[in-house]
Design a protein around this nucleic acid. Structure first.
Lengths: 136, 136
DNA sequence: GACAAACCCTACTAAATCAATAGAGATACT
DNA sequence: AGTATCTCTATTGATTTAGTAGGGTTTGTC
């Protein structure tokens, strides 16, 4: 349902979101941090760039940055960019068409509720839960 | 998102729903009516049988019938039977897990709202719309 | 200008999944 | 006995997904 390519894209955006404001991140850095095959990630980031989510800086000291604040990018936007619609409209109108459309809407609604800033906060919370800090 | 196998299953159940109360339908009949490869349909119907949605009568005059009234079978039940969960739970708990779960719930909710009796009514309405009857 | 570090583009291959088919078997009615 | 039906396992072919390869272009530094 969610392809590997798509989860790679989401993880990459999450990595860029965390770094936002501190200069570009290279494909290699993202790939290592998030454990993504680098040449595959390269294609994904280009795709995101063409759809206006990321920008690239070429040459030395180059890399990728997010085009918009993490707060303004929803999970749904990235997923739709990478995967297209979930329920692609069939050629003919049949008894199921309306239901698929409802499902599409419901899914988009859920995915658009979450933005990448809130995912960062959630990531922080998960880390604190996994490695508790008992210092005063 | 919805595989061919799954739409075949839904169409087959719809065909059986229409026929409900008038004896069994053979694989061949369903296949021709709904334009489904018969040997593929065979496997699908067996699968539905093993999950309690259909029953089969062997030998001459045999075929398949629905185990329950069309009113009591939801779209979601058949889809889950054929496809399993949409967002299969990943091994590790990460920042996306909760969202996927929400999406799964939203989708199930939409799919469980519609039963096969209401699909039959919708099919009738579509037919009337396509071939209008102007008689008094 | 040479070099190195980065992104850019097209094409290809390998693996997995989906769709469909084949063939032999079991059951039940007439 | 014969025929129409469902039953089971295995295999094949098509499509999609995942990943790789190789060469190209841009930019900063020495």
């Amino acid at each position: 349902m969610i392809s590997k390519k798509c989860t790679y894209a989401l993880k990459a955006v999450l990595a860029l979101a965390r770094r936002q404001g501190s200069g570009p991140m290279t494909i290699q850095q993202i790939a290592e941090l998030q454990d993504i095959p680098p040449r595959f990630l390269e294609a994904i980031l280009r795709d995101l760039k063409q759809n206006g989510f990321t920008e690239s800086i070429r040459g030395k000291e180059g890399g990728y940055v997010l085009s918009r604040p993490a707060r303004d990018i929803s999970l749904g936007e990235i997923i739709r960019c990478v995967e297209g619609p979930w329920f692609s409209p069939s050629a003919e109108v049949d008894v199921f068409t309306a239901v698929w459309q409802e499902a599409e809407n419901a899914l988009n609604h859920v995915m658009d509720e979450t933005d990448f800033q809130s995912l960062l906060r959630k990531e922080d919370a998960l880390r604190r839960a996994a490695v508790p800090d008992y210092s005063i």
